[in-house]
């Protein structure tokens, strides 16, 4: 499928599968983020979870349309650190968004179809915009990064 510019379909599909795995993790992780936030601060987490759920479903449809089995969610996930406060929750959300950003950059690197690059660029930008909000909530500076998703960013 991904032969528009000579790139192999396998590499593109593999990268899309990795992105789907990252989206699964984000959907799960935002449950933890929301649970650690006060009730009046959960809207941001809920919106992010919905966004990740939507793109995960979109990826599943895309992979299925190519005859590729979508990557399933893991049976369980390990948190990178204890999430005991709203600041921890915001920090976890940053990890989730940066994880998906890295996966989408990988898709850009491997994609052969422009429509896939368009999808990846859009989701990468959305992840970074959400990350800016969470870095702010976590009290981090700077709240932006020059190279979202790239190694060493």
């Amino acid at each position: 499928m991904a032969e528009e510019d000579g790139t192999g379909a396998g590499a593109e599909d593999t990268a899309l599968g990795e992105a789907m795995a990252a989206e699964h993790a984000a959907v799960w992780g935002y449950g933890t983020v929301g649970a650690a936030l006060p009730a009046d601060s959960r809207a941001q987490a809920a919106a992010a979870e919905t966004a990740h759920r939507d793109v995960r479903d979109r990826l599943a449809e895309l992979l299925q349309s190519r005859g590729v089995e979508p990557v399933p969610a893991e049976g369980g996930y390990a948190l990178p650190f204890p999430v005991l406060s709203p600041v921890d929750a915001a920090g976890l959300a940053v990890v989730l968004e940066e994880g998906t950003a890295a996966a989408w950059v990988r898709v850009l690197d491997q994609a052969g179809q422009s429509v896939v690059r368009e999808l990846a660029a859009g989701e990468l930008a959305a992840a970074e915009v959400r990350a800016v909000g969470w870095r702010t909530a976590a009290g981090r500076t700077p709240v932006t990064t020059a190279f979202p998703g790239l190694p060493g960013a």
């Binding site: 795995a21 993790a25 369980g76 996930y77 390990a78 994880g99």
Partner: peptide, 10 residues
């Protein structure tokens, strides 16, 4: 932390 294997997103 869960004893479950860490996912690719984490």
């Amino acid at each position: 932390p869960s004893p479950a294997p860490a996912p690719r997103g984490f």
